[in-house]
């Protein structure tokens, strides 16, 4: 049984344009399965619906259609105790470390509050120990240096570490890390992703790692399951190694060709550029969502919807070419 299972998720938002409301699907019929202790990468450009999908699995956004199951139970139909178990076991590391920490709370307030609210331990001393342990685990060492600081006194990397510590504190079974390092210096990215990886692997926690940089996923190994999203749809799904060596969807190919590589021959062979500008969910073309930018587009692509097809047991793609 999978830990998290999302089926047929559709999220419809509406944006105002003048006096009219224009509805669009930020997430469009997506399935997502995450097993206990497994890491799943969610890859896609800005606006592809990654955050929205992540929030649906955390019950922060109610899907317009589809169900989310936690340990086999529909979270909408759970008993109170089950829901509480789910709630405390599904944690979130948001995209923006600047907006995700309460500006008027010190690190100590932020972390101690959680323990006190849930009465996890009996004394303040134990609580402080637990907080310190978690802080050391995420590299906030020594903890005393950070405990009494407000978010504005922390660097971007330190904030993100506090944010990760907050997610780990409840020892959850599932964490959504939404582009946890996007706003950081390149030199810091690797360190923080490794910290996150080590921490969750020690606890056998599942992770949904959202990113638009495929290179970051390499920290999790080539067996990591990766979903590639484009305009609210999953266009390809495969283990990372397979995806890098044998990308099938033109969109995935384009993403991979954008990775800087040293070998000029390899670069030449992988050259593929998408036409046009980055997509907007409001101007999604009929048929395949990539049909207006794809170099291999056919008549069929412009007319017929595509569905995810299994090419091999672990490799799925949504493209009329296959």
């Amino acid at each position: 049984m999978s830990l998290i299972e999302a089926k047929g998720i559709v999220v419809t938002f509406a944006i105002r344009k003048g006096l009219k409301k224009l509805p669009f699907n930020a997430v469009d019929n997506v399935d997502l399965e995450i097993e206990q202790g497994m890491i799943v990468g969610l890859l896609g450009e800005s606006g592809s619906g990654k955050t929205t999908l992540g929030k649906v699995t955390l019950d922060l956004v109610k899907p317009t259609k589809g169900i989310v199951k936690f340990m086999g139970k529909d979270i909408r139909k759970m008993y109170k105790e089950d829901y509480r178990k789910y709630r405390l076991n599904a944690q979130y590391v948001p995209q923006d470390p600047y907006a995700s920490l309460h500006p008027f709370k010190t690190t100590k307030d932020i972390l101690m509050d959680i323990i006190k609210y849930h009465k996890l331990v009996h004394s303040d001393k134990e609580a402080l120990e637990l907080v310190s342990d978690t802080m050391i685990k995420v590299g906030l060492n020594p903890p005393e240096k950070y405990l009494n600081k407000y978010p504005f006194q922390l660097s971007g990397g330190e904030r993100q570490r506090v944010s990760i510590a907050r997610a780990l504190l409840l020892k959850p079974m599932y964490i959504v890390a939404d582009e946890p390092v996007t706003m950081l210096d390149a030199s810091l990215k690797g360190a923080i992703v490794s910290t996150l990886k080590n921490a969750i692997q020690a606890m056998r926690t599942s992770l949904l790692f959202i990113t638009h940089e495929i290179t970051l996923l390499q920290y999790f190994g080539s067996q990591t399951k990766v979903l590639v999203m484009y305009l609210g749809r999953v266009v390809e799904q495969a283990p990372l190694g397979e995806l890098l060596q044998n990308p099938l969807h033109p969109y995935t190919q384009a993403l991979i060709s954008a990775i800087p590589v040293a070998d000029p021959k390899a670069r030449a062979s992988r050259k593929l550029l998408l036409r046009g500008s980055p997509p907007s969910p409001l101007s999604k073309p009929p048929g395949c969502p990539l049909s207006d930018r794809c170099p291999f587009v056919t008549e069929k692509c412009r007319k017929e919807e595509v569905v995810l097809k299994a090419i091999s047991s672990k490799h799925l793609v949504a493209c009329h070419l296959y």
Binding site: K55, L58, L60, R84, R87, L88, A90, Q91, Y92, P94, Q95, D96, A99, S100, L101, H102, P103, F104, K105, D113, I114, Y117, H118, S163, R166, L170
Partner: peptide
């Protein structure tokens, strides 16, 4: 709409705690 409220929900804080601590503190 701020992200720290999303996080407060996943942490399992109840509505009262979120309203009268997290949000209220912001408006102190």
């Amino acid at each position: 709409r701020r992200e720290f409220i999303d996080v407060a929900k996943t942490i399992g804080y109840g509505s009262w705690k979120i309203m009268f601590d997290e949000v209220l503190r912001f408006m102190a």
